[in-house]
């Protein structure tokens, strides 16, 4: 009844103050999440940042040590069955039932929900068609290509018509074409009003799909907001790319120190320096004789910066 009291614009997923320890290590530290219907929340962070642990708390694999998770207004701890009826989960690994065909996987999955999904046969046919799986309906899942396996994983997560979908690195290991087809499917689901929570290592994926980004570092939220805002906050407005082996390298390093900036991110033989507009003007004034390139920042810069800080 809790759920019915929520207004239509309330978030479908609302997590407050999530904390999780493994042994004595705090792996998630006071994380808040909000995801509305028709919205994709992207979670970004280096390995070990706590993304998967947060997801696993949201879909009930792990109990938070502190904090509260509400799905469609239902408190997960008080009513796990009610909360799980509203979510669909696509885990990082394929977890098909290999004893069943593609079609039977979808049908069988429907048996694990109450109230049972209505008109399950029609629903499965519809999903097989939509995810281009109809011609593989009688095949065993392990015979499918990577892209089709992912499609099946997403389709299976939707059998019971959930309101929130969790996608844990849904396109890892897929070729570019398969990735794009998964993106299109995910985008279609967003347009239908599903709230989607996505973790990914692919920066272009997070940038293109996410309406909101949550950037995590060592279990805590570093920043959150729209992709452009997040980039501006963390990386700056411009990225200067220059040869790291130039004779003036020491002078550049000293200039950064004097400006109170981070040391540059090094990729092979180049340095990438994040600067705001005024910083870029000062850099140009100081090193006008150098050859360098200026480009807008992207999520790769953010990711590299986070990884750099972590190391």
């Amino acid at each position: 009844m809790d759920a019915e009291n929520k207004s239509p614009d309330s978030p479908l997923l609302e997590a407050r103050g999530l904390v999780k320890h493994f042994a004595s290590r705090r792996v998630v530290d006071a994380v808040d999440l909000h995801c509305h219907g028709g919205e994709i929340l992207g979670m970004l962070g280096a390995n070990g940042a706590g993304k998967t642990t947060i997801l696993r708390m949201c879909y009930g694999f792990l109990q938070p040590d502190a904090g509260e998770i509400r799905i469609g207004g239902i408190n997960r701890r008080e009513d796990p069955d009610g909360a799980n009826r509203l979510i669909g989960v696509c885990t990082q690994d394929d977890t098909f039932d290999t004893d069943f065909t593609v079609r039977d996987n979808l049908l069988r999955f429907g048996n694990y929900f109450r109230p049972r999904p209505s008109a399950i046969e029609e629903r499965v046919d519809q999903l097989l068609g939509r995810f281009d799986l109809a011609r593989h309906a009688a095949a065993k899942p392990e015979t499918l290509s990577g892209g089709y396996r992912r499609r099946l994983m997403v389709a299976r997560a939707l059998v019971h018509q959930p309101r929130v979908l969790f996608l844990d690195e849904p396109t890892t290991g897929l070729d570019p074409q398969a990735r794009m087809s998964v993106w299109e499917l995910v985008d279609g689901l967003r347009q239908e009003g599903l709230g989607i929570v996505l973790t990914t290592h692919y920066m272009d994926e997070a940038e293109r799909l996410s309406d909101k980004l949550l950037v995590l570092k060592e279990g805590a939220v570093v920043t959150s907001g729209g992709p452009r805002t997040v980039l501006g906050d963390l990386v700056g407005e411009h990225v200067v790319v220059l040869d790291a082996n130039i004779p003036e390298a020491d002078a550049v390093r000293q200039w950064l120190l004097d400006e109170g900036l981070e040391r540059p991110t090094r990729i092979l033989n180049s340095w990438q320096i994040a600067l705001d507009g005024a910083g870029l003007a000062r850099f140009s004034a100081s090193f006008g004789q150098l050859r360098f390139e200026v480009r807008p920042p992207n999520l790769d810069d953010l990711f590299l910066q986070l990884a750099d800080k972590q190391s």
């Binding site: 885990t91 977890t95 098909f96 290999t98 004893d99 694990y112 019971h160």
Partner: peptide
Amino acid sequence: YQKTWEGQLTTQVR
């Protein structure tokens, strides 16, 4: 090996 349990656990099965 089959990860059948993990699949089941993403539903209302605990």
